[in-house]
Computed example of a mutant assay.
Amino acid sequence: METSGRAPTIVVVMGVSTSGKTTIGRMLAQRLGVPFVEGDELHSAENIAKMTAGQALDDSDREPWLQALAGWIRERTHAGKGGVVACSALKHEYRDLFREAGPGVWFLHLALDQETARERTAHRAGHFMSAQLLDSQYDTLEPLRAGEQGLTVDAAADLDANLDLVQAAIAPFESDS
């Protein structure tokens, strides 16, 4: 996923908790032969403790985390390398920050209905995101807007089919090299 003469493609896999960001992100990175970063791993201990306690993060809590993710995007872009990052990227302004960090940023929104997300959360073990925080994520979520480079897919659809859709959608960006 290296490019010459243009910014490398950085795919940000976005969506609410349990939409499958990590799963599809890892698989997409493997298919593309680029590094993957799990955005949750860049949260501060304070943010994780707050979410574990069932408290939603506000923008001031998220700011250092978003800056760390933007830094990773910037590093990959400056190195001329692509990558995949899993991050909720719920608000348009957060996505703007990522676009400013790397002009090759492309978003994959894994859309998931609340009922399915609740069911998945109830069966999820070992993660700090609780079912009670799902409502706050849906309240915050701003789907991709017209003009934002990216694609929205059904997170409950077949994983391989979604990966094929993503690869086909980013192919024009990759063939410019």
Results as ranks from 00 to 15, higher is better:
72 W>D: 15
172 P>A: 04
98 F>A: 10
97 L>I: 08
26 R>M: 13
3 T>F: 00
125 A>Q: 13
173 F>D: 14
16 V>P: 00
35 P>M: 11
30 Q>G: 14
171 A>E: 11
6 R>G: 00
163 L>Q: 07
141 L>Q: 10
54 G>C: 05
120 R>C: 06
133 L>F: 00
35 P>Q: 15
93 E>Y: 11
158 D>E: 15
133 L>C: 05
149 Q>L: 12
158 D>I: 02
16 V>T: 05
109 H>Q: 13
176 D>K: 03
137 Q>M: 11
25 G>T: 01
96 D>T: 10
141 L>W: 09
55 Q>R: 14
156 A>W: 05
26 R>G: 12
8 P>C: 07
10 I>C: 05
50 K>Q: 15
17 S>W: 07
3 T>S: 00
8 P>L: 06
125 A>T: 15
14 M>R: 01
112 L>N: 01
51 M>E: 11
8 P>E: 10
66 L>W: 03
67 Q>I: 09
53 A>L: 09
12 V>D: 13
137 Q>E: 14
20 G>I: 00
87 C>I: 02
99 R>F: 04
71 G>F: 07
11 V>A: 12
155 A>K: 01
48 I>K: 10
38 E>C: 03
142 E>W: 03
47 N>M: 10
18 T>W: 03
1 M>D: 14
118 R>S: 13
112 L>A: 04
157 A>R: 09
4 S>Q: 12
39 G>H: 05
35 P>V: 08
104 G>H: 00
15 G>H: 03
155 A>E: 09
136 S>W: 02
2 E>F: 12
34 V>T: 04
12 V>P: 01
27 M>D: 11
131 A>W: 01
128 F>K: 05
18 T>H: 09
177 S>W: 02
84 V>A: 04
69 L>M: 13
128 F>M: 12
128 F>H: 08
134 L>H: 01
122 A>H: 12
161 A>Q: 14
102 G>R: 00
91 K>I: 05
77 T>C: 12
40 D>T: 01
8 P>G: 05
58 D>S: 08
14 M>C: 11
69 L>V: 08
165 L>P: 02
31 R>G: 07
11 V>Y: 02
154 D>Q: 05
6 R>N: 04
77 T>V: 07
101 A>M: 05
118 R>F: 13
136 S>M: 08
47 N>K: 04
76 R>F: 00
141 L>R: 04
134 L>F: 03
83 G>P: 00
44 S>Y: 03
103 P>N: 13
124 R>K: 10
83 G>S: 09
11 V>G: 00
113 D>Q: 03
141 L>C: 05
64 P>F: 10
137 Q>S: 11
134 L>G: 00
137 Q>L: 10
177 S>E: 11
61 D>S: 05
73 I>M: 11
44 S>R: 04
54 G>A: 08
86 A>M: 12
